[in-house]
Amino acid sequence: MNSEKLDQLFGYVQERCLWQFFSRSWDRQENIDGILKTATDLLTGEPPAKETPMDRLFYADAKVMVQDLKDRFPWLADAGPAQVRDLMHGLKDKLVEFTITKSLNHELNHTLY
């Protein structure tokens, strides 16, 4: 995996995306999983799921993110599906590490909101 490209994607998400910083670890995990799955579909030409309200939420966030990524990083246009999946997988791991597993936020695992 190209770490420079991964850093660019990660930098974008950190700077722009509020969904990675929801209140609790399970909310963050749900958003990261759902939005990056939908973004991967959009980037690889697969039809995104839009059946449930949560599907449409993920689609809304992913659609804006994918358009921004294409605008900012022209190299994405030349990336094949395998490379996109690889990068998005790396992005997911990095986001989980920064915002969940190694986050110093003491409120992440409270059982109540």
């Binding site: 509020l18 969904w19 929801f22 209140s23 609790r24 909310d27 309200p53 949560m54 449409r56 939420l57 809304a60 966030d61 909101y113």
Partner: peptide, 18 residues
């Protein structure tokens, strides 16, 4: 954010932060 979280938990309404 608390009420948005609870509306999602109790009523299944998605939360979109902007």
């Amino acid at each position: 954010g608390y009420i948005a979280n609870e509306l999602k938990k109790q009523y299944g309404i998605p939360r979109l932060d902007i």
